[in-house]
């Protein structure tokens, strides 16, 4: 929207917004992570398929590493759940009464699914998969 305001980046970070601000910041960070991942993936697929180039295969190795996968699972899962909460609140504004409960519900769904995914991934790494 490009509003003319005088708030710097670090001033914004120091703002104590609590839980909703954390969700907002994580939504942006996970979104940025995913768009970088998907853009790299599309470019790498294109160059691997058309030319079989080595640097494109090198990009594949980066995001096939377990650390990157842990991040991308976090990003996809959090962005999906938080996005669903935002969609519900935006399209049915009456639900705004329950926005605090919805944030809790969101974390309540997120934590078990993400923990299970981490458990399975670590198990696979330990097994040498």
């Amino acid at each position: 929207m490009a509003l003319d305001r005088k708030v710097g980046f670090w001033e914004g970070v120091r703002y104590k917004g609590g839980g909703p601000m954390l969700a907002w910041a994580l939504h942006r960070i996970s979104g940025l992570g995913m768009i970088i991942f998907i853009s790299l993936h599309v470019v790498a697929s294109f160059f691997t398929q058309q030319m079989g180039s080595d640097w494109a295969i090198g990009i594949n190795i980066i995001y096939e590493s377990p650390y990157f996968q842990l991040f991308i699972v976090f990003a996809v899962l959090f962005h999906a759940l938080n996005g669903m909460r935002i969609i519900i609140l935006d399209l049915w504004p009456k639900m705004l009464r329950y926005q605090r409960e919805m944030t809790w519900l969101q974390w309540l769904i997120f934590i078990p699914i993400y923990s299970l995914t981490i458990f399975i991934m670590i198990q696979r790494v330990m097994a040498g998969g």
Partner: peptide, 27 residues
Amino acid sequence: VIFFGGTHGLNGLRVVIEDYTSRPAWQ
């Protein structure tokens, strides 16, 4: 998937960048 994903993602990136740039020329 790629149409929805690419449009949603790049628009999101545009919104984030426009939040931190205020000059109309940059826009």
